[in-house]
């Protein structure tokens, strides 16, 4: 084989290998989506979204309580976690050399790698055990703890991406530093930060383990964050590990709803990035 043909051969082999890698990477995702749709879609109906559960043995019933619960628990978690995360991220980006920023970065990285069940047990100890009852609010705290490090790190990275020349332009116009950071730098990085925050929300929406020890789950529609509350992942967990065939059906359907919720959040994140202004036109 002459050298050129050999090079071409090598190129084809490598492209082939990469193609296989892509397939292997995408296959599980596709398999999950397909099997969820096949097994869950048949149980989906309008009633599934508007009803609360019926006693075991009866057919019908829905997961309205869990949809409401997930929205409330994740909503409160976002209200706590996103502002704290963005604030910490701004601090780390503005004072990158400070000791506190170094500590924050380190702690965030460690927390990002902490199994979520550990956070659940921790919140159980400091909130649930103190209050002596499970509550949706405790679940929100657990999820917020998971969200903060993610939001902190993405915010910092995105602020660092804002060109120095923009900061200089604002300072040269006589902007004080805090104003430069908030109106120019943060504003420019905002679409990316929104994406990061939404992705962390999506991740939190799918968490099960931290909620087992905190929000606990419930069979009833509840709007009181001081009481146990249902959430989609908890419902999947309960139904899937239950003994009845109808429950297994419901678990599939609920899982499909959960995936849809996460998918919608991801799409929203994508749209938010697309509107990003580029800074050099």
């Amino acid at each position: 084989m002459n050298p050129r043909a050999y090079r071409r051969f090598k190129s084809h082999v490598m492209v082939g290998l990469m193609g296989v890698a892509v397939l292997v990477a995408v296959l599980p995702l596709l398999a999950i989506l397909v099997s969820l749709t096949l097994k869950g879609a048949s149980s989906l109906s309008l009633a599934f979204f508007t009803n609360t559960p019926v006693p075991a043995g009866e057919t019908g019933g829905g997961v309205l309580h869990a949809i409401v619960g997930t929205l409330m628990i994740v909503g409160i978690a976002s209200l706590i976690g996103v502002p704290i995360g963005i604030g910490a991220g701004i601090y780390c980006a503005e004072y990158p050399a400070s000791r506190l920023a170094g500590i924050t970065r380190f702690v965030s990285d460690v927390l990002n790698g902490t199994p979520s069940i550990v956070v659940g047990v921790f919140v159980w100890t400091v909130v649930v055990a103190q209050q002596k009852h499970f509550s949706a609010f405790a679940g929100s705290i657990a999820l917020a703890i998971l969200m903060i490090p993610m939001v902190t790190r993405t915010t910092e990275e995105l602020i660092k991406l804002v060109p120095v020349s923009l900061r200089e332009a604002a300072l040269a116009l006589g902007y004080p530093r805090w104003r430069t950071s908030l109106t120019i730098v943060l504003r420019t990085a905002l679409p990316g930060i929104v994406t990061g925050a939404l992705l962390s929300v999506a991740r939190a929406a799918g968490e099960t383990a931290p909620l087992l020890f905190t929000a606990l789950g419930s069979q009833y529609l509840s709007f009181n964050p001081d009481q146990p509350m249902a959430a989609l992942p908890l419902v999947v967990f309960t139904y899937a590990s239950g003994p009845y065939e109808e429950w297994h059906q419901l678990a599939w359907a609920t899982a499909l709803v959960l995936i849809l919720v996460v998918f919608l959040l991801s799409v929203a994140a994508r749209l938010a990035t697309r509107q990003r202004f580029s800074s050099n036109g």
């Binding site: 200089e168 332009a169 202004f277 800074s279």
Partner: peptide, 16 residues
């Protein structure tokens, strides 16, 4: 001071 002394940079750096 910076309000009295304006600056134009090497590359255009308009705000987005």
């Amino acid at each position: 001071h910076r309000q009295r002394v304006g600056m134009v940079f090497q590359r255009p750096n308009v705000f987005p």
